[in-house]
Amino acid sequence: MHVLITAVGARTEHWTDLFNSLCARPDVRLTVLASDVSPATRRELDRLGQRHANFHSQVLPHRLGEARTGHMASIMVRGGPPLSPPPDVVHIIGEAAYLSTWQVLRTRRRHWPAVPTTLYAAQNVVTRFPMPFPLLEQYAYREVDMILPITPAARQVLRVKGYRGAATDIPLGVDTTTFRPRAEAGTVRTFTVGFVGRFEPHKGVLDLLRAAELADCDVLLVGDGSLTADIERAARCRPGRIRRHHWAGHAELPDLLTQMSVLALPALEIVQRNVLPWIGIPLREQFGRVLIEAMACGVPVVGSDVGEIPYVIGDAGLVFPAGDPAALADRLIKLRACPETTRDLAAAGLHRATTEFAWDRIADRLVQIWRQLHERSMSVPIPARAGQQVRDNAGRKVVA
């Protein structure tokens, strides 16, 4: 089965582990078309091509990029010839309202009208975009065969916005061969709360620093962002208690997670104005992938009650009210005072990560969905528009 996946934006680098899991299946041939991606993504796509004979990728140029507008919805791809042979299934990593999603659906309708299409969805807030994005969104709802929301909240947003088609929840995943418990896990000498991500106000980093001070515990921060200067000032006030590490890739991150007694994600809800200044877009944590990475390493997790953090944590961690450093400090003190609770949460998190969020398991579910859609498409003729020349499911040319 030939699967075409399209993806845009710097965050595409987080999908390469899924691509690797898909390519481990000998009955899958995978083509990835990407655009406006990071240098790290380009390097990883090249490595996948060297590792797997059934993987091919191409980074397409773009007319309009995320850097100019601040939002992936505005990315427009330039070029991209039709594939030969054509795909059996198309999967779009991008929301329904994206310009790039509209481009892919238009290409599919023109060249492969019988090919089933699935679409990723992560929006967990009902957002009303300016024109023409609502029109693109409704067009996508009509064109795709199935949407794959990453959380139940994302599925509910689809229904509120008018999507009535098939939907199956498919979460984000973690590479459990890379993110796994280390022999030295649990040997952290001083109780240390960790954070991995962008040092930005909506991530709650300053709340974490205040909570760590209240709980009198050490801090390990991994990442970078606009609050770096604030973090450095806090470190000077608590010498030797706050450590900061630069951005870490997959190879480094598991070892850094192992240095944490607990990982915290104290995210806040904010209003974003990066499309048009007079249009506010509520921003809530859509998943919190670092939570499942920590769980897979056997590190207990604590998160705020914002967005999908409680859903991802489930019963495998502790949740506190967002914006309440004292409540976060209380959770940290509880874990430090009760090692048995800490061990129980670490075990529950590891089980949750490996049984519900492992990329290998998610890849199995995706292949099963795509194969069913492909088999159904082979048995159901696709009607053509008047005068349009297309090929039927047997490959014969048909003029409507």
Rank of each mutant, 00 (worst) to 15 (best):
E200I: 04
A248M: 04
I281A: 09
Q272S: 08
D17N: 11
I309V: 10
L209R: 15
D36G: 12
T69E: 08
R289N: 13
L350A: 13
A114C: 12
A114N: 15
V399C: 06
A248N: 00
L253W: 00
A53W: 05
L268K: 13
L268A: 01
M378Q: 11
T107H: 08
I231C: 15
T258A: 10
V196I: 11
P85M: 02
L30F: 13
V306W: 01
E184M: 06
G303Q: 00
P239E: 12
G303N: 05
L99T: 09
T107N: 15
L135F: 14
R391A: 09
G165C: 05
R47H: 14
A264F: 06
N393Q: 06
T168A: 15
A53K: 15
K334T: 11
S100M: 11
C217Q: 03
H56F: 00
L276T: 00
Y98A: 14
E252Q: 10
T6A: 05
W15I: 01
M1C: 07
H111F: 13
K161D: 00
I362N: 08
A353T: 04
R164L: 12
I92D: 07
S84R: 10
P152Y: 11
H202T: 02
E340C: 14
G314F: 10
A53N: 12
T41G: 12
G298F: 09
A248H: 03
V380H: 09
I333P: 03
P325A: 01
D344V: 15
A215F: 14
V37T: 13
R182K: 12
P381V: 06
D175S: 11
H351D: 04
T178D: 01
A122P: 06
A251R: 15
L33V: 04
S21G: 04
E340K: 13
Q138A: 11
I369H: 12
L209Q: 06
H250F: 01
M131A: 15
D207I: 05
W15G: 00
A166P: 05
A353R: 04
P310V: 02
I382Q: 10
H246F: 01
R371W: 05
T258F: 00
A346R: 14
G240I: 10
P26Q: 13
A235R: 09
D88F: 08
D315G: 14
P85Q: 00
S261I: 03
T187R: 14
V104T: 13
P300C: 02
I170D: 12
F179G: 01
G204W: 10
D324S: 09
L257G: 03
V302H: 09
T228V: 09
G65H: 07
I270C: 04
W359P: 03
I75L: 04
G94T: 07
L83K: 12
L119A: 10
Y311M: 02
V312W: 01
D17I: 03
C217W: 08
T31Y: 13
D46K: 05
A267T: 06
I281R: 06
C297M: 02
H52V: 10
A363T: 05
G9A: 07
I150L: 13
L220H: 05
A251P: 00
I75Y: 02
